[in-house]
């Protein structure tokens, strides 16, 4: 399941909804990405996340389907926010659930690596009267690529 929204999300409520009535789950991993304030020249006051409505949902569904083809996930959720955010605010939530922890851990990491290089979002940071578009990191590409060499991982 994927969702793109401007509003904040409640991690506990999302987790409860995803796992309600499920007794087959032995391992649940939740990852939350938040807005980092930074320090010095990198200190920010606020951030705006722009996205490509339609393609964003399509890409998130695609990466979720890819994860589910690689690991035996019993449930999964991706929630990604857009719009104006402040330091400390939630940006993204990934939940993966499986019978055993290895699949859940790996799938969560895979989902984050893949969505960072594929989902059409762009961060614009504001610091005082200056604004700048965040540049993509080479390390993000490297993180996503390392999964390409690996076939199906944990069972």
């Amino acid at each position: 399941m994927i969702r793109v929204q401007e509003n904040d999300f409640d991690i506990g409520a999302e987790l409860a909804r995803l796992t309600e009535g499920r007794s087959d789950l032995g391992a649940i991993v939740t990852f939350t990405g938040t807005v980092r304030q930074g320090a010095g020249d990198d200190k920010i006051d606020e951030m705006t996340l722009e996205h490509y409505p339609g393609m964003t949902e399509g890409e998130l569904e695609r990466v979720e389907a890819e994860a589910r083809s690689r690991w035996p996930l019993a449930a999964s959720l991706i929630v990604h926010r857009f719009g104006r955010l402040e330091p400390g605010d939630n940006i993204v939530l990934v939940i993966t659930a499986s019978a055993h922890r290895k699949a859940a851990f790996e799938a969560a990491e895979f989902l984050m690596d893949y969505l960072k290089t594929n989902a059409p979002f762009w961060k614009r940071e504001v610091s005082g009267d200056k604004a700048r578009w965040v540049e993509a990191r080479a390390s993000d590409d490297a993180n996503a690529k390392r999964w390409d060499a690996r076939g199906k991982a944990a069972e």
Partner: peptide, 10 residues
Amino acid sequence: IAFFPPVTGG
């Protein structure tokens, strides 16, 4: 057809 910089979400 869309044009954009490398993505920076997550």
